[in-house]
Design a protein around this nucleic acid. Structure first.
Length: 492
RNA sequence: GCACCGGUGGCGAAGUGGCUAACGCGCAGGUCUGCAAAACCUGUAUUCGCGGGUUCGAAACCCGCCCGGUGCUCCA
């Protein structure tokens, strides 16, 4: 069963397969590295990660290119304010961005493309556009795309611009354009601003041109899929199409994947509303990276997702259940053999979660069969009817599911540790939740020692001491579980 | 104003013509346990924003209304 994915361009579910029969070539709009990434940014990158991982799981190789916008108005302004070059300025945030992706276990694209390292390609593209009559230079030296040269403009965002009157809205800053909607390909240098001396004059690239130039460089004139946040659909992606197809006269990207914006507490996230969170903010509040990952991917990408702290707590509880169950399977002792019912349940769960993801990446639906399997297996363990062969089959399903969701394997210590180290260095220790600091103080060895002491106390039927240790640990977020196979503990 | 999306239990959320309306979280009771935790069981929406209509049959399709959100400008 192939993946059927909503395609903004056609407005329907289309099968997504590599057009060359080999690797799926995809381009995803990356960040403008002028600040730390916020959860809205990461929802998009996470959903693209789900897509990417699911393709790989389905046996489709992926060639995934992501750009880094490392020159734009905000970067120039902020770098100037900080008194550093744009390269020095963006380096910090680019590094932070990749650290954050790692914290969230977003896989690295095969190719990262920085705008400032592809100026030549952009200049060439502008030249080709000029040769095709689709670009013109204004008196100040800036280059613009001539919208009238591309009649299909609006086909992605379904906008009909034919009724738009020129000059209805004229931006004082953009005084020499033929038509108000023509957009900048190349911005003429202004005094003191970063610029490049090129064949089309001294200046810097417009925002849209970088994606056209770099996508075509790495993926060819025509490729399989282009992804980004819904906000980019217009005008950014529409402009990319216009720039690219005006030169190549080929379909730029066959499939367009847009991730909806998230809300925070039912409102649009914004700094002025006070509901703006970076990944680091959340880690310092004590939320685990896995909780954030699961929360941000559990609502299907085409639905508006309402971010709340309750949602993070819920995600943490769900993950806890999956991890506890996995540990029960891995540490338990099971007789050799198989239970046919569980074997069938495992096969069914595997098929069902794959089917759900094939259905337009329905991540919410995909979770259900995994939890169904979990309950069936727990019941069987309680009744002594789960055997070693079942354990292996079920662990294989969980591992497969985790290749896409990647929340069951516990990798949460490092992101939190890294966030704390960053907070210390960045002077943000005031933002760290006190409970988090209390928890960090306990090493695994110290916990093991206390757990061992409790076990001894229990054997001596000194329950007062045993319970005292348990509650002390509980205060520091450590939960103890007694079972036939011994004592387990975990960090909440 | 124009356009688009959504309104399903206490919360999140799946389901878009026909099985007892998934799944997760929460809550209540029970089993197990020294007590817990974990796990399991039972109960938590006779009903899917409201009003009409189509149909043998609707949460799902059509019309109207109400509410929430988003886009139309930089934004993932």
């Amino acid at each position: 069963m192939p993946l059927r994915l909503f395609n903004t361009l056609t407005g329907q579910l289309d099968e997504l397969t590599p057009s060359d029969g080999k690797a799926l070539r995809m381009y995803a709009c990356g960040p403008t590295v002028y600040d730390y990434g916020h959860i809205g940014n990461f929802r998009t990158f996470l959903q693209v990660d789900v897509l990417r991982r699911f393709l790989l799981l389905s046996g489709i190789p992926v060639r995934h290119v992501m750009n880094i916008t490392d020159v734009d108005d905000k970067i120039i302004r902020n770098a100037a304010a900080a008194g550093v070059s744009i390269g020095e300025y963006t380096k910090v945030y680019e590094k932070a961005f990749f650290e954050d992706l790692e914290s969230l276990r977003v896989e690295r694209p095969e190719q990262i493309a920085r705008a400032t390292e592809h100026i030549d390609r952009m200049v060439q593209l502008v030249q080709k556009l000029a040769a095709a009559g689709a670009a013109y230079q204004a008196e100040d030296g800036s280059w613009y795309f001539r919208l009238k040269a591309f009649p299909e403009y609006g086909k992605l965002s379904k906008k009909d611009l034919s009724g738009m009157e020129d000059g209805a809205r004229v931006d004082v800053d953009e005084y020499e354009k033929d038509s108000a909607r023509d957009f900048a390909l190349w911005k003429a240098a202004k005094p003191g601003e970063t610029s490049w001396d090129t064949a089309i004059g001294r200046g810097r690239p417009g925002w849209h041109i970088e994606c056209s130039a770099m996508a075509m460089e790495y993926l060819g004139d025509s490729f399989d899929l282009h992804a980004g946040g819904e906000d980019l659909m217009f005008p950014h992606h529409e402009n990319e199409i216009a720039q690219s197809e005006s030169v190549t006269h080929k379909i730029f990207a066959r499939h367009w994947f847009h991730v909806r914006f998230l809300l925070v507490d039912g409102r649009k996230m914004s700094k002025s509303e006070g509901n703006f969170y970076t990944l680091r903010d959340l880690l310092l509040k004590g939320y685990k990276a896995s909780s954030i990952r699961l929360a941000l991917i559990s609502v299907p990408y085409r639905h508006q997702f309402n971010f709340t702290f309750d949602g993070l707590i819920e995600a943490a509880a769900a993950i806890d259940r999956l991890r506890t169950f996995t540990a029960r399977l891995k540490t338990g002792t099971f007789a050799a053999g198989e239970n046919p019912e569980l074997q069938a349940a495992a096969l069914e769960a595997q098929a069902d979660y794959i089917a759900a993801l094939n259905n337009d990446l329905n991540t919410a639906e995909a979770r259900a069969p995994i939890f169904d399997l979990l309950r069936a297996a727990n019941t069987a363990i309680d009744q002594g009817s789960l055997f070693a062969g079942d354990r292996d089959a079920i662990l294989a399903v969980l591992a497969s599911f985790d290749r896409v969701f990647d929340v069951i394997e516990d990798h949460d210590a490092e992101p939190t540790r890294a966030a704390l180290a960053w907070a210390e260095q960045a002077g943000r220790m005031n933002d760290v939740a006190p409970e988090l600091l209390a928890r960090q103080g306990l090493t695994d060895e110290a916990i093991d020692a206390l757990v061992a002491e409790r076990t001894t106390a229990k054997k001596q039927r000194n329950f007062a001491r045993a319970d005292q240790i348990r509650s002390e640990l509980a205060e520091k977020g450590i939960v103890i579980e007694d079972s036939k196979d011994g004592v387990r503990w975990k960090r909440k």
